[in-house]
């Protein structure tokens, strides 16, 4: 069977792309649309580095056929970054040294965004549970948890990332 046209909303923009049967959203984003903030860590659903938001919910783009997202809203880290400055979650990660090698950061930041959208004042335990699917092999978890707490504070204070 030939490729199909798949239409979905990527970071607020209507996007059409030709996909071969069962191509993953991860491959479409990275190789066809040049959105490389979405990383490739394991392609087994185990590391969380390919996390994107599907209708605001975190999902693993390595296990998601692109055709399955037709008509839906996909957000990648590219879509979170404002025109200038940083989103409060990004700012908190930067300020709190919650990045080391940087490979888990896009997935970690998107998961944090999704968490704070649902639960603006998460406990430490709730943060740990929420990010447990995003593996940081540099083991910078303490700084990451502090960054999530700081981001929650900043968002509560109404900072909008400018």
């Amino acid at each position: 069977m030939a490729s199909k046209v798949v239409s979905f909303t990527l970071n607020g923009r209507e996007t059409e792309v030709m996909v071969k049967p069962l191509t993953t959203l991860q491959v479409v984003l990275r190789e066809q649309l040049g959105h490389t903030a979405t990383k490739t860590g394991c392609r087994q659903g185990g590391c969380g580095s390919c996390t994107v938001l599907l209708n605001g919910e975190p999902v693993l783009s390595c296990l998601l056929p692109a055709e399955d997202v037709a008509g839906q809203q996909v957000t990648t880290l590219e879509g979170l970054t404002p025109i200038d400055g940083l989103h409060p979650v990004q700012r908190a990660f930067f300020d709190h040294y919650a990045v080391q090698c940087g490979y888990c950061s896009p997935g970690m930041i998107l998961t944090t965004k999704a968490l704070l959208d649902r639960n603006p004042t998460p406990s430490r335990e709730e943060i740990v549970e929420a990010i447990s699917g995003n593996i940081c092999r540099c083991t910078g978890y303490t700084a990451i948890i502090e960054a999530v707490e700081a981001a929650a504070q900043a968002l509560k204070g109404g900072q909008n990332g400018r």
Binding site: G34, T36, T76, F94, V99, G102
Partner: peptide, 23 residues
């Protein structure tokens, strides 16, 4: 002192180019 990471902005915006991102 705490010094801002040189590569931190690239990491938090996902614009750091890793090998897998080279096409």
């Amino acid at each position: 002192q705490s010094v801002p990471r040189r590569d931190g902005m690239g990491h938090v915006t996902g614009t750091t180019k890793f090998v897998g991102d080279v096409h």
